[in-house]
Design a protein around this nucleic acid. Structure first.
Lengths: 232, 232
DNA sequence: TGATTGACTCGTACGGCGTACGATTAAATT
DNA sequence: AATTTAATCGTACGCCGTACGAGTCAATCA
């Protein structure tokens, strides 16, 4: 009845299925494995975006038939789940500066989180739709522990975590999707300038032209942390 | 060469295309129009979610053939654009309490924004992928004007606006997608409890089981506003 | 009036998608 | 040597967005 694999772990017994007799197709591809599938899916997503990931194309890159993938994963959704979580691993703050203040630690982890997602711009918009993988949970655990240790009241802890989650998620999704080309940017300016009688304030502050995303993230995060845990 | 319609405006000349001779099919559907297409698309999205919107199904609901839709819209993407913007109109604070404090005004608009998106849970995840429509820009303009009037420094204005945007977007997307069934919720608890040695803190605070989304939004927003514009 | 045009509708068809199903093969086990 | 298991893949099905072109009316023009 062909019970599929589902969890982790893969043997990886060396085997070759190239050509039965004539050595015409000596593609020396390694055998399929979950790891290889996920890594290749990430590459493909990076190169072609969410809509570019098709099972057939993924199989092409792996040098296998499309249906072979289904031995290792249940369906395409699972490929997304695994690709997403694989990209969100956190290695912790640099070992050198071991025990910084809690604020430094939170900021470091959240900036790393954002950076990881921006390195793979498809990941941010995928995050909210998928189950929480172990790497995501680890980050939340670290955040929770750090804030708790910093004196955030238990009653406020969940609010604080979700607020930071919301901020990071919103910032990253927005950044990843608003990465306009110069043409788009010019068009937006044009459009807004033409309508400046309707939107004078955001036109004046050049809201849509400001592209110091990193600075805005950092400053906004500081404001939020100020609100969550007033200094001293 | 059949130049398609693209912008707004639609004539809507009364006409009937029912059956040429035999009155067997006297479906008295009104004729197609952009408005009707968009309204029906919103209904369909509400009922079936993002993946449930298919051109054929939309046409079915409209009592028309699938290809007829393409006279009124360029492609499916445009249906999404129009449905999204149609759902984000803001009518302003209740007229009775005309001039509240700035904080009340900001909170009201942002809670309304979130509520509008939660009434149509597909809209939140669509928002970041689409161009800013007039209804969105109006909300940003109002936000900008209010904060500016409240004394937020010009240098901090964009950061403040984007921070609030990020917060609302993240909160709403998360809420809309985390709306687990009780079964899912039980499964998540099970899973987390089983792994509680790995994630003790978030397990203890019941982060994933906390159900008070509205309260968390309101409290988190308060914290953020505290950070952005320290009271007095 | 009859012919023409333009607005609108829709049947058919095409290429591409995810994946069910079953045949096939090679390795491991008995 | 016989059997079981792990893995691969060709074929096919149903569904999708939509290109294309033929139809149907109402309004306009000759």
């Amino acid at each position: 009845m062909a019970a599929k694999r589902s969890g982790a772990g893969s043997k990886g017994s060396g085997r070759r299925g190239a050509s039965p007799q004539s050595g015409q197709e000596q593609r020396s591809e390694p055998p399929l494995s979950l790891e290889r599938i996920v890594a290749t899916a990430v590459d493909l997503l990076d190169a072609e975006g969410v809509d570019g990931l098709k099972m057939r194309r993924l199989a092409d890159r792996l040098g296998s038939g499309a249906m072979s993938l289904y031995w290792h994963v249940g369906n395409k959704e699972e490929v997304f789940d695994l690709a997403l979580d694989s990209v969100l691993e956190y290695r912790g703050p640099s070992d050198i500066v071991e025990s910084r203040d809690w604020r430094g630690e939170v900021v470091h982890m959240l900036e790393d989180w954002r950076a990881s997602m921006l390195r793979h711009p498809w990941s941010a918009s995928l995050l909210p739709r998928r189950a929480l993988g172990p790497n995501i949970l680890s980050r939340l655990e670290l955040l929770s522990k750090t804030l708790s240790g910093a004196g955030v009241a238990d009653a406020d802890l969940n609010v604080a975590i979700w607020s930071l989650w919301n901020f990071v998620l919103g910032a990253t999704i927005t950044r990843a999707n608003f990465d306009l080309s110069d043409d788009d940017r010019a068009a937006a300016q044009q459009r807004l300038t033409g309508l400046s009688q309707h939107y004078p304030t955001i036109e004046r502050s050049r809201l849509l032209l400001d592209n110091d995303w990193d600075g805005a993230f950092r400053k906004g995060l500081d404001f939020l942390l100020d609100g969550l845990a007033p200094r001293q």
